[in-house]
Design a protein around this nucleic acid. Structure first.
Lengths: 108, 108
DNA sequence: CCTTTTGTTCTATCAACATAGAACAATGAA
DNA sequence: TTCATTGTTCTATGTTGATAGAACAAAAGG
């Protein structure tokens, strides 16, 4: 596994990549789930999807500045960077999280 | 031209299609420009792009519930549905419009 | 009627991206 | 060391969607 992840600095988080990252049903599900759980690893949110797919989505969210990954032993714990995002784009995540479905969908 | 456009009712505007509509550089530019101009027709925002491309983007924005098109003679005037969007997703458009670039980019 | 302007629809093409299997890497435990 | 667990990386595949030309449609004016 990569020893380190790169988390963009707040000033390097830009709107368009952030919107593109959020505008996907699986990633929106991850966001909502993380909002509820506060912290979760990749496997916890698989829901029948392959690990490689989920790993990809976590990467997109990470590079967009939406979540932070902390390595703890063999697990990688992810949290939303809500404080940073609120600072950078006030009200944006709040308006999205307010709409949070319901349930993180199973695959299919 | 189509005699009528279909504008989704506020309760039929959902988050994911809205985010997908906004998460495009050209459409984000249209939104920001409309925010400044209050009203504009398709041709006004061409910026060297073909009409068919812009017409497509206006359609996506319309079907996502983001803008309203009013036919006036041969021109179709577009406005943001800010009141509806604010009602449906409080703070969302505000946080996006706050980031409005700058300038609507020329093609290339 | 003919022409101009505006914008849509049709169609094709191309690129970006989501999906997913397989191999690999890293940690911890037996 | 050996094995299991976790997650990444590589690679291929398939689908979605943006781009754009061409034909079409509707309105207004001559």
């Amino acid at each position: 596994m990569a020893a380190l992840y790169h988390h963009p600095a707040p000033e390097d988080i830009t709107l368009l990549p952030l919107l593109r990252a959020v505008a996907d049903p699986v990633r929106l599900g991850i966001i909502c789930h993380l909002h509820g759980l506060k912290e979760a690893n990749c496997t916890t949110l698989l829901r029948g999807r392959p690990k490689s797919s989920m790993s990809h989505h976590f990467q997109v969210l990470r590079e967009a500045g939406i979540l932070h990954t902390r390595v703890e032993g063999v697990q990688h714990r992810n949290t939303l960077r809500l404080d940073v995002l609120e600072d950078r784009f006030p009200g944006l995540m709040a308006s999205i999280l307010r709409e949070c479905p319901t349930e993180f969908p199973e695959k299919d």
